[in-house]
């Protein structure tokens, strides 16, 4: 086993060269190159992290804007709905008003007409009484030969008319 047989003759050179070469490797590679490689990785990680943060911020912004747009849209829709309802109510109110006006004028005309009819009936009744009393006067004068004055005849006619 050369490791043991050659130990006495080679240990110093083994240790010396190992220390020299390992020290060189440590300072040139471990201390010189490694930190730069790790910096590169850290830079990249940071950059990726930053990009992700920016993307997240953009998404949040988009969400906020969409939310605002949605709110505005809802408000607009409600406003439009309110406008439609208002117009509908307005037209309904107008129609009712107009109908009420027409009904009032119709009622008035109906009342006038009824008044006129009453007046006509009263006038007609009075005329009938007049004619009847004159006829009564005439009949009494012809048959009985009694000259009845107008008032008495009228009175009698009214009495008879009232009795039916």
């Amino acid at each position: 086993m050369p490791q043991i047989e050659q130990l006495a003759g080679t240990y110093s050179s083994q240790i010396f060269w190992l220390l020299v070469i390992f020290a060189l490797a440590f300072f040139i590679i471990g201390r010189g190159m490694l930190p730069r490689v790790m910096d590169t990785m850290a830079d990249r990680d940071r950059r990726i992290g930053d990009d992700l943060a920016v993307a997240q911020a953009a998404r949040d912004e988009a969400d906020t804007r969409e939310e605002a747009w949605r709110t505005r849209e809802t408000a607009n829709r409600e406003a439009a709905q309110a406008l439609v309802n208002e117009a509908r109510d307005q037209s309904k109110r107008d129609a009712e008003q107009r109908l009420a006006g027409i009904k009032t004028s119709l009622d008035a005309r109906l009342a006038q007409a009824e008044q006129r009819i009453d007046a006509a009936r009263t006038a007609a009744a009075a005329e009938i009484e007049q004619v009847a009393s004159e006829a009564t006067q005439g009949i009494v004068a012809r048959i009985a030969g009694i000259d009845v004055d107008g008032d008495a005849a009228h009175h009698a006619v009214r009495k008879a008319l009232a009795h039916g």
Binding site: T10, F16, F22, A25, I29
Partner: peptide, 26 residues
């Protein structure tokens, strides 16, 4: 102390150099 440059030391050096070359890629 004897510090002869042996085949062992040579391969230590080669390992270090190959490692250095590898790291150059990084």
């Amino acid at each position: 102390y004897n510090i002869s440059f042996t085949n062992s030391a040579l391969w230590m050096a080669i390992s270090a150099v190959v490692l250095w070359l590898f790291m150059l890629g990084g």
